[in-house]
Simulated assay, not measured.
Amino acid sequence: MKTTPQPSANLQCGASLIEVLVALLIISLGLMSMARLSATTIGFNKGAQVRLVALSLATQYAERARLNVYGFDLGDYDIALNGVAPNPPAPDVNANDVTAATNVAQGDRREFTQRLANHLPQGLAVVNSTRAPGVRDLDIWIMWQDVNTEPSGALLAAGESQCPAGVNGNSCLYFKVRL
């Protein structure tokens, strides 16, 4: 005669509450990590977009200086830190060459500083020109407040390393353009 085995009293038919909680903890940690990764990726993409806008603005300003070489030679394309953008007078067809070149350069400076302020967060620029026989160089520093970096992070320190002397707390890009 055969007897059927009796079910053991210790036999378990499912997951215990502790196993379910551990599984939920592991899944939630993974999801939080993925959310943090997504946020970081979006922040870096935004930083790349700001740098691309800064490059475009610097290129446009250099091209305008290249078109108005006489105004460049007069030093009218220099921008000091926290300098006030000039109000260029209305175009005068009877103006002499110096006045016309200066007025065009003032208009270019004003438009450049307005574009920086409009397209970059707290956008500023410092521009120095080198005018020597056979050499026309434009040094452009574009600065903005980068909201995606931590105040003590290495990324902020790397951005500040490109800034001119006396500027802290901003991200900067430096461009050297030979006209």
Rank of each mutant, 00 (worst) to 15 (best):
N168P: 00
T4Q: 11
S33C: 04
C13E: 08
T40D: 12
P88K: 00
P151T: 09
R36Y: 11
T102V: 09
V93E: 12
I142K: 00
A39D: 10
G30L: 13
V167R: 03
Y77S: 02
E150S: 15
I26C: 11
Q145V: 07
L156K: 15
N168L: 12
Y174Q: 13
A158C: 06
L11G: 02
N68W: 03
T130N: 11
N45V: 09
R64K: 10
T130S: 13
A15T: 10
I79V: 15
L29F: 09
L57D: 04
S129V: 05
S8N: 11
R136W: 02
A95Y: 07
E160I: 13
Q114K: 04
C172M: 09
Q6G: 04
S171E: 09
A62Y: 05
L21Q: 06
L29W: 06
A23V: 14
V147I: 09
A105V: 05
S28D: 07
M1F: 09
Q60M: 08
P89E: 10
N170H: 12
D108L: 04
A35F: 06
G71Q: 03
T113S: 07
P151L: 13
N168I: 09
T102D: 03
M32Q: 13
S28P: 01
S152I: 13
L31S: 13
A23L: 10
I27F: 14
A105H: 08
S56W: 05
L155D: 15
T59L: 06
R36P: 00
K46M: 04
V127G: 01
Q114E: 13
G169W: 11
C163H: 07
Q60L: 12
S56L: 06
L74E: 01
Y77A: 00
D139C: 01
R136Q: 11
A101H: 04
G159T: 02
S16P: 05
I42H: 08
G83R: 02
N148A: 14
G75Y: 04
N170M: 13
P86V: 03
L120I: 06
Q162R: 13
A48R: 13
I27Q: 04
A132I: 02
S171H: 13
N68C: 06
S171K: 11
V93C: 03
L116Q: 00
K2W: 05
V126F: 05
L155N: 12
N96T: 07
C163S: 12
L179C: 01
H119V: 00
P133G: 10
D139W: 04
L24W: 08
A65F: 00
V167K: 04
N87Y: 05
